[in-house]
Amino acid sequence: MLVDSHCHLDFPDFADDLDGIVSRAEAAGVSRMVTISTRVREQAKLLAIAERFQNVYCSVGTHPHHADEEDGVTASELIALTKNPKVVALGEAGLDYFYEHGSRDAQARGFHTHIAAARATGLPLVIHTREADEDCGHILEEEMAKGAFRAVLHCYTGGRELAMKVVALGLYIGFTGILTFKKSDALRALAAELPKDRILVETDAPYLAPGKFRGKRNEPSYVVETAKVLADTRGVSVEEISRQTTENFFRLFSKVPPVETSA
């Protein structure tokens, strides 16, 4: 059993194939999927998908690319939107200095606001960070000093220093199909080093299809390929990686109901 802790089922890439996407994921042993918000103002679309499928859940938040567009969204507004039982996380929010579609000031404001909402609700924050290790680490330390919160740095591609800081703060790190790419030796070395209770697998679908499907539209069922490479990287079985990452998921995303197993 596996979980796709981060996908985007509301994106146009999936509009005509949602039933097939979910069915293939279930057939591959993916028991839960979390479709991640990029715009608070489009939350209704995510909720419609999450409510349509029993094993799909969602988050609420503003991606740093849209930080200026949704600058001013308050923690109270985010908190109110988490009351729905299908909303199990905040985000994704954070810092992206690679594209900088959102201004750095607006990204930072949004990041702080989402952390405040995560702290208030007890729900995990899904963090997007790219080419912003130093500032991300500073904000995480600053905010953790104000009071504990839970979070995962999704689709991790940052450096070792930030990863170790994240783990020391009690947060999690998520790996996508990037882990399977030929040039990802440094990322695999980091994945081998991290504590087993701090790692997750995800797809970030429709993006970043793992090596076996490189160039194709990604989908939640492909998380199996990332799990295989993570298992090989860490020198354990796929069954062990599946068990551990799934346990980690339910510990972090504790609002998601556990999978019922037959006696």
Rank of each mutant, 00 (worst) to 15 (best):
S103K: 11
I115R: 04
T82V: 04
T82E: 03
D105K: 08
H112V: 15
L90E: 04
E92K: 01
G110Q: 09
E131A: 14
G122K: 10
S103G: 11
D71Y: 15
L81W: 02
Y97D: 14
F111E: 11
A116S: 10
A116F: 08
Y99P: 11
D105A: 15
H128F: 01
S76D: 15
E100L: 02
Y99C: 00
D135M: 00
S103F: 06
R130Q: 14
T129K: 07
T82P: 06
V73R: 02
N84K: 13
H128T: 07
T121C: 07
Q107H: 04
L78G: 10
D68C: 03
R119L: 06
D105C: 00
I79W: 04
A89L: 05
T82Q: 04
R104M: 05
E100P: 01
G110H: 05
L123V: 06
R119C: 04
H101Y: 15
A132I: 11
P124E: 02
A89C: 11
E100F: 10
H114F: 03
A118I: 02
A132P: 10
I127T: 12
S103I: 00
G102E: 12
K83N: 12
P85M: 02
R109P: 10
L95K: 10
D96G: 13
Q107N: 00
P85Y: 05
G91H: 02
H128V: 00
G137R: 01
H101G: 12
E134P: 08
D133W: 01
S76Q: 14
F111T: 09
P124Q: 08
A108S: 10
L90V: 09
L95F: 08
A67C: 11
F98T: 12
K86C: 12
D105W: 09
R109D: 14
A80K: 05
A93P: 07
T129E: 03
L125G: 03
A120M: 03
I115D: 11
D68R: 06
I115F: 03
E100A: 13
A117F: 01
D71A: 15
E131H: 06
L81G: 02
G122T: 03
H114K: 02
T113C: 14
F98E: 15
A93E: 10
A67S: 15
A89M: 10
S76K: 08
I115A: 00
G94R: 01
A120H: 09
E70M: 09
E69S: 07
L81V: 10
L78Q: 02
A120Y: 02
G137P: 03
V73F: 03
I79C: 03
L125T: 11
V87D: 09
G72Y: 09
Y97H: 15
E77G: 11
A106M: 09
R109F: 04
L125A: 08
A80T: 06
V126C: 14
A117N: 12
A117P: 03
G72L: 13
G102P: 05
H112D: 14
L95R: 00
Y97W: 13
N84I: 05
K86Q: 12
A120W: 01
T82A: 06
T82D: 08
T121I: 01
D105Q: 14
R104G: 00
I79Y: 05
E92V: 00
H112I: 15
A116C: 10
L78P: 12
A118G: 12
G91N: 12
L90N: 09
G72R: 05
R104C: 00
L125Y: 01
L78S: 04
T74L: 08
L123M: 13
E131Y: 01
T74Y: 12
A118T: 06
Y97C: 11
L78R: 12
D68K: 09
